Simulated scan of single mutants.
Amino acid sequence: MLFLTISVAVLFILVLSQIRTRGNGIVLKKQSYEIQKRWSEEGASPCVLVETPHKELVMTRDLSGFKQFRFKNIFIKTSPLPCLSWASSDDVWIKMLNKELKYVHDKGFLQQHPKLKPKMRAILLDWLLEVSEVYTLHRETAYLAQDFFDRFMLTQDDMAKDRLQLIGITALFIASKIEEIYPPKLHEFAYVTDGACEEEAILEMELVMLKALNWNLCPETVITWLKLYAQVESLKDGVNFLVPQFSQDTYIQITQLLDLAILDINSLDYQYGILAAAAFCHFFSFDVIHKVSGLTWDSIAPCVRWMTPFMRTVSACPRAELKDFKKVTSDDRHNIQTHVDYLSMLVRAHTMLAV
């Protein structure tokens, strides 16, 4: 085992792969890592990076088909969480960081699907946000579906564009069963596709997706990180950490920025925690960002700069307003996914990026 003791530092990690041939196939020997807490002689609890046992995967594709997934800007430091009565704040923080290592997303999946274009992904995700609002689904549900879609596509090859809607609605179907107390029925998901996806096809795709994702269905999404940062920033002494303290109005402004940004395929260049921190940085000072995330400016600066045209686009549009939904209490309405004309906004943001 290789132990790298890290206190306050930015960690750039490569998941290394060793490849050798076996018959007509190729064996991919994959090294993976996890973050663990270790006690020092002084009683402190620095984090360490632990190399886990190799796992061999037999693959039957050309060497050129392999790529190394690069994890950017994983920051390991003392937890910014307050003392919790129900768990160790260090343990909670480390578990969240480990999920950033475990759940891989990468825009390179488009190279595996020559028939697909970045705009197709944007159209699909925009539609999923709209469906989420129609069925009063939570933001976390929509962002889980986005994660499932992107990670699933990373496991597939040469997908036809006419399959995207089926994959997208199935991802939302799975996410809603995980996140929602009363998820929509299967026939409702089929109905919203206007006959393009039958119930049986959704169920079949559900099994395919679950197997491809290896039942890894619990990432820390962009929304999870954003809510954590917002809560840490606004928390008052002696208040239950699980009770939201942040401003709903400010929160929905930031979520609108993130809704727009994730439609861009280049958002997959960044980890979810980095994306949330960058969006947060457009509304708060960097000192606040450092307090709630521990990230350095160098860690988030590229993402903040990339996100600037999206922020300008959002700022030029009517200000996001809290919406009222039937059977949704006022203290929960900020958690319901909303939709505006994001595709038109995306075109304007891309125009700014091109300048």
Score class of each variant (00 low, 15 high):
Leu2Gly: 03
Phe12Ile: 14
Leu14Tyr: 10
Thr21Asp: 07
Arg22Gln: 11
Lys29His: 10
Tyr33Trp: 12
Trp39Lys: 15
Gly43Asn: 12
Gly43Glu: 11
Cys47Asn: 10
Cys47Lys: 06
Leu49Thr: 14
Glu51His: 06
Pro53Cys: 10
Lys55Ile: 05
Glu56Arg: 06
Lys77Arg: 13
Pro80Gln: 03
Pro80Ser: 03
Pro82His: 02
Lys95His: 08
Glu100Asn: 04
Glu100Thr: 14
Leu101Thr: 10
Leu101Gly: 01
Lys102His: 11
His105Ile: 15
Gln111Lys: 07
Gln112Arg: 13
Pro114Asp: 05
Lys119Arg: 15
Met120Ala: 10
Leu128His: 00
Val134Gly: 05
Leu137Cys: 01
His138Lys: 14
Glu140Tyr: 02
Thr141Asp: 03
Ala142Gln: 10
Gln146Ser: 12
Asp150Lys: 01
Phe152Tyr: 14
Ala160Val: 03
Asp162Pro: 02
Leu164Lys: 05
Gln165Trp: 04
Ile167Pro: 00
Thr170Gln: 08
Ala171Gly: 07
Ser176Trp: 00
Ser176Lys: 01
Glu180Trp: 01
Tyr182Leu: 09
Pro183Gln: 03
Tyr191Gly: 13
Val192Cys: 12
Asp194Leu: 13
Glu198Met: 11
Glu199Thr: 08
Ala201Phe: 12
Glu204Asn: 10
Met205Ala: 13
Met205Gly: 08
Glu206Cys: 07
Leu207Gly: 07
Leu213Met: 08
Trp215Phe: 15
Asn216Ser: 14
Leu217Asp: 09
Val222Met: 09
Thr224Lys: 06
Thr224Phe: 13
Ala230Arg: 07
Leu235Met: 12
Asp237Trp: 02
Val239Glu: 12
Asn240His: 14
Phe241Gly: 06
Phe246Ala: 04
Tyr251Ser: 10
Tyr251Ala: 07
Ile254Ala: 14
Ala261Arg: 02
Leu268His: 02
Tyr270Leu: 03
Gly273Ser: 13
Ala276Lys: 02
Ala279Lys: 02
Ala279Gly: 15
Phe280Thr: 05
Gly294Tyr: 05
Ile300Asn: 00
Pro302Leu: 11
Val314Thr: 04
Ala320Asp: 00
Asp324Ser: 08
Phe325Leu: 04
Lys327Thr: 09
Ser330Cys: 09
Asp331Trp: 12
Asp332Tyr: 09
His334Met: 09
Asn335Thr: 04
Gln337Pro: 06
His339Asn: 14
His339Leu: 03
Val340Gln: 11
Asp341Trp: 12
Tyr342His: 15
Leu343Cys: 13
Leu346Arg: 00
Ala349Pro: 09
